[in-house]
């Protein structure tokens, strides 16, 4: 975790926008789904998505980045997809629709994805900290960054569910950590 009052080298926005950002995300997503959930996952084009529809109940988990990079990692999927994630995390145990463990699992998944991505990104591993996860649920909502940010986003499919991963990086100049 970055120490207070140390001069941090801010993560470069151009670097964030390079193809390596999403390549690292793909590797992290595949690793975490394989190891923790025992599920295969693949990158898909939005138009290839299956039965999940935009009108479905959705859940979004958000983990913030602070330190050398300020921003966030979001994962978004349907409530049914989130339920499948929770069940897979428990080795296939059945999970009731309203079970609190669904949000808990989604938050943990986002935490692992954010952590895995930043640990794999040069200049961020020890210079960037993660916030505890937050989970949002509902229909037809948008998550917006308040500060000017750049985004890298990817769609994936596991089983019959879609997952959208979005990484946001605040566009910041050289600074010292507050």
């Amino acid at each position: 975790m970055p120490e207070a009052n140390t001069v941090l080298k801010p993560f470069n926005v151009e670097e964030f926008l390079s193809p390596a950002t999403l390549e690292r995300a793909d590797k992290t997503v595949a690793e975490i789904f394989g190891m923790m959930l025992g599920l295969e996952i693949e990158v898909v084009e939005t138009s290839d998505l299956g039965p999940d529809t935009p009108e479905s109940d959705e859940r979004t988990a958000v983990v913030g980045f602070s330190g050398a990079m300020r921003g966030s990692c979001h994962i978004r999927m349907t409530a049914q997809g989130a339920r499948s994630v929770a069940s897979a995390m428990l080795g296939g145990a059945p999970i009731d629709e309203g079970d609190d463990s669904i949000n808990d699992a989604l938050g943990e998944l986002c935490n692992m994805l954010a952590g895995g991505w930043k640990n794999d990104t040069p200049g961020l591993s020890s210079e960037c900290a993660l916030s505890p996860p937050t989970v949002i649920s509902g229909r037809n909502y948008r998550v917006r960054m308040i500060k000017p940010s750049v985004k890298a986003s990817r769609m994936y499919r596991f089983d019959i569910h879609a997952l959208q991963l979005t990484l946001c990086c605040e566009d910041i100049e050289s600074r010292t950590d507050e």
């Binding site: 995390m89 428990l90 080795g91 609190d100 808990d104 943990e108």
Partner: peptide, 12 residues
């Protein structure tokens, strides 16, 4: 762990 899910995963 603050996540009940992760505690269950670790035990499993």
């Amino acid at each position: 762990d603050d996540s009940a899910m992760m505690r269950k995963v670790v035990l499993r």
